[in-house]
């Protein structure tokens, strides 16, 4: 089926893709190792004396930020998973015509919620969080983040729940298992890949989120990773080498998660993807 010409085509495409995606990565690493003046005078050169100036400056900030980010991202991911799984299950069950309508309405609503531009939700959330006394607290930020990522997580997870065959549930029913029992012992195991994908998605998204973090975290809290990254760009100066050094430091945990998740992330989507 595949000619040698096709093989060559594949190789060319792979090389092009690798170049397109490694060049920015290489650029980040190279420039994080440049001194303040080198990063400006020769941003494109690969020949320079490496300097750890930038790393020295940002290391402590970076580590502190990673700690905050880990807390926020883990909590948000866990909470989203906790909420999205039963919801995806419920939205995948076919019970009655009435329920079908509920499902359709909910899915439409979930889509609409994703249309709202995030910066525009900050002001309304200020009022909400202040009313509940959650402004400037970690739970407040977590709730805001959860509401931000939950609609997408449900939409991502639902197809996995839909593809669980009804026959399995019926068998469980005959055995006298309650719905909750069936959910735990049948749905959950079969949603494994889906949950894993949602977990990775939400973790990645929460890791990069900074608008809420900057606005809703308690004063004096160490900013999370992306907040510290945003701090590097200000009116008086932009520390490019510091930004890139921070990027390298703060992407290390992401890389660890990624190494762990990559195979499932890449192949897990094969299961039915985002239907």
């Amino acid at each position: 089926m595949k000619s040698s010409g096709h093989k060559a085509g594949e190789t060319i495409v792979k090389i092009l893709l690798i170049l397109t995606y490694t060049t920015p990565l290489a650029w980040i690493i190279l420039n994080s190792l440049k001194s303040d003046s080198d990063v400006l005078t020769k941003p494109n050169t690969v020949i320079f004396t490496p300097s750890f100036e930038a790393y020295n400056t940002v290391f402590l900030d970076g580590v502190g930020a990673i700690f905050t980010s880990l807390q926020v991202s883990l909590l948000v991911t866990a909470a989203v998973l906790l909420l999205a799984t039963p919801t995806a299950y419920a939205l995948a069950t076919k019970v009655s015509h009435g329920w079908n309508r509920v499902v359709t309405a909910t899915l439409t609503l979930l889509l609409i919620l994703q249309l709202v531009p995030q910066p525009m939700t900050v002001i309304p959330l200020y009022s909400v969080l202040a009313t509940w006394g959650l402004l400037g607290t970690l739970p407040g930020l977590i709730l805001a983040d959860v509401a931000l990522f939950l609609p997408f997580a449900i939409m991502l997870l639902r197809p996995f729940a839909v593809s669980v065959p009804t026959a399995v549930y019926e068998a469980a029913e005959i055995d006298g298992a309650s719905r909750w029992r069936a959910f735990l012992s049948i749905t959950l195991p079969m949603l494994r890949n889906g949950m894993f994908i949602v977990l990775s998605f939400v973790f990645i998204a929460a890791w990069g989120e900074f608008v809420y973090a900057i606005n809703f975290l308690p004063h004096g809290t160490v900013f999370p990773v992306s907040g510290v990254l945003a701090q590097q760009i200000s009116v008086y100066s932009v520390g490019w080498n510091r930004l890139m050094a921070l990027a390298v430091i703060t992407c290390l945990p992401l890389l660890a998660v990624f190494m762990f998740a990559q195979k499932r992330l890449v192949h897990g989507l094969s299961l039915g993807a985002v239907k």
Binding site: A90, L113, P124, L125, S127, V128, V146, L150, P151
Partner: peptide
Amino acid sequence: YLVATGAALTGFALYPLFV
């Protein structure tokens, strides 16, 4: 199975949308 999600989204996504 929808209660928790419904509560979270009503409070922190739907209400802000309304605002």
